[in-house]
Design a protein around this nucleic acid. Structure first.
Lengths: 142, 142
DNA sequence: CTTACTGCAAATATTTTGCATTTGG
DNA sequence: CCAAATGCAAAATATTTGCAGTAAG
């Protein structure tokens, strides 16, 4: 049980949807695990601390593959910035400070009431796992 | 009180922050009022049903100006799509269907509990007005 | 008048795609 | 082996910017 069996899960999840296990996908997945809330650009940089370098286009394709395998999800925390995180670490909401940009996490359960209300009133099945809430964090409040 | 004095409010809000009142800004603002949740691209198209045509770059600049004047706000409902709405019509959340893309609105008050909880547990002042919730709408559920 | 705004076109930034080559299963 | 994935470079998309002319105040 060296490193929580993550490598094995990655292989299994990819194969389960008919995708291959490649070095590129392993490296991108490892980078996401190391750096939650990272953008594709940031992940490219992070991944390329090691060689051989992986071009941005391949990072994008790896992200698609990982997402298709259900290993990662992405959220749009701000403008041009999809951020990726591991699916098994996704049960939280993102509190994005409009002031300093800090991203805090909160357990998804705080939104249970809201989810129930939306299901009730609109028949809408909300996935709060993908939710970003903007506002002002404790540190940036007067 | 013909049309709720909107034209006057626009002029006043722009001037209040030292911006000028121009035909471009009036037309873009009118388009937003007519079509909530529209992207810059959609607004450009809508605005250009009348002539003279306004180029995209000017629409972007008008949106910036209107936002700076506090007349409109924008939200990111999905990938490359900031959507604009009038600030005085913004007290709602956006329920975005991942299936069909439909955007439903729900009064912001349904999130009151959540807002209170986040303030309580994280000292985070959430602005649910800018919140998009992804999921599946009633029509797209089995 | 004076400075901000606009239109146009070119520049940026970001993500996607075609295709020959490599590699996983 | 065969199909899928990669690397590279070029294309597509979205947004920003420089500048000279126009118009708001």
């Amino acid at each position: 049980m060296s490193s929580s069996g993550t490598g094995t899960e990655l292989a299994a999840s990819l194969r389960a949807v008919g995708l291959r296990v490649t070095a590129t996908r392993e490296r991108v997945y490892a980078a996401i695990a190391r750096s939650p809330h990272a953008t594709p650009e940031a992940l490219t940089e992070l991944v390329n601390l090691d060689e051989p370098a992986i071009p941005p286009s391949s990072v994008y394709r790896a992200l698609d593959a990982l997402e298709e395998a259900g290993l990662v999800t992405h959220t749009h925390l701000d403008h041009h910035a999809p951020t990726y995180h591991r699916a098994d670490h996704a049960q939280h909401l993102h509190l994005v400070c409009r002031e300093c940009g800090a991203v805090t996490e909160s357990p998804a359960s705080v939104a249970d009431d809201l989810v129930a209300t939306l299901a009730d009133r609109h028949g809408f099945a909300a996935d709060v796992t993908h939710m970003a809430i903007h506002g002002r964090c404790a540190a940036c409040r007067p």
